[in-house]
Write a protein that binds this DNA or RNA. Structure first.
Lengths: 169, 169
DNA sequence: GATTTTATGTCAGCCTTGTTGACTTTCCAA
DNA sequence: TTGGAAAGTCAACAAGGCTGACATAAAATC
């Protein structure tokens, strides 16, 4: 098992990663993700929504006019799962679903004013923590943080991520 | 590492964090966490277990002889939730529950051989990805990665994490 | 010794969010 | 005109959270 990679000469500190070091990283991801979702979760608890609603709202905000299919591929859930979430958001007037002009089968999704307000509350809360963490760790660390996360993604998701990243930058 | 380094661009890059920059970090966490759990999930899919079983197995392996209460505080779930998971692991002979010698109310949890075998399979899979990501990003980045994650945790969880970190190192 | 507190386990029931499968409607395009 | 893609809907189910209530054993305290 493992760690049999004591590379042949040179760059030892670069290449030799003990199981212990890796395990720390794994546990760090576990605990950090809990913090990452904690603040939006608290807001959503009061309303009738959950994390699934947050994700939908986030990416509709991020990609205004996106189709349901596109959202499905970003979120990686089934259309039935997403539909349940979207239905409640549409019913509650947070999301608007417009029939496509070019292709009328498609529905283009937008946040309403009300939806945008909730989105702002959620992402503000999440950004407060993120900003504090970035500042505490420093710019060098932030760059490393993003590099490792990016390298950890599945190739498909990395492509999705990079498309979003460029689009927004 | 001295991350207090104001950086080549001056203080601006340290203190001024745009919403865009923070949003990229948020999305990176979202996509990376999917990758992070993907490999163990694939293994667990074949068996009758899920992510909750994985977490229990991980921390029992990590803290052999831990009590149920201690595990509860690490995992942050209710005892009913954990009990459902533990019961199936004990029934299937992956986990052993020993009555405490000093305090007979306590149950001390250990992995059996069978449990340790599954643990190894799961963590090997997860480490493969982690190792690849670490190598791709480089040691500098890894340090930053861990710093930001640590800063992102809730204080309580950070304490838990650090206790584990020391214990294992 | 009696009482209270703690640690654990368990039953029942609920919610969210994921899944599959089947079916319909709309409508673009070959 | 017909095949198939996009979308919506219904039904059923599972994992894994949650709460509340209750049982038991053992420790701690009075």
């Amino acid at each position: 098992m493992s760690t049999g990679n004591a590379g042949p000469g040179g760059g030892e500190s670069l290449l030799f990663l003990t199981d212990e070091q890796l395990r720390k990283g794994i546990e760090a991801m576990f605990f950090a993700y809990r913090g990452f979702t904690a603040d939006p979760d608290r807001i959503l608890d009061g309303l009738d929504y959950g994390r699934a609603h947050h994700r939908a709202i986030h990416f509709i905000h991020r990609c205004p006019g996106t189709t349901v299919n596109n959202l499905l591929s970003i979120l990686g859930v089934t259309k039935q799962s997403l539909n349940r979430v979207l239905r409640s958001l549409i019913e509650d007037g947070l999301v608007e679903s417009r029939v496509g002009r070019v292709d009328k089968r498609e529905r283009h999704l937008h946040l309403t004013e009300k939806g945008a307000t909730l989105e702002r509350a959620l992402s503000d809360a999440q950004r407060v923590r993120m900003r504090a963490a970035y500042r505490a760790a420093g710019p060098q660390a932030v760059q490393g943080f993003r590099q490792v996360l990016e390298a950890m993604m599945d190739p498909d998701l990395r492509r999705q991520y990079q498309t979003l990243k460029e689009g927004g930058a």
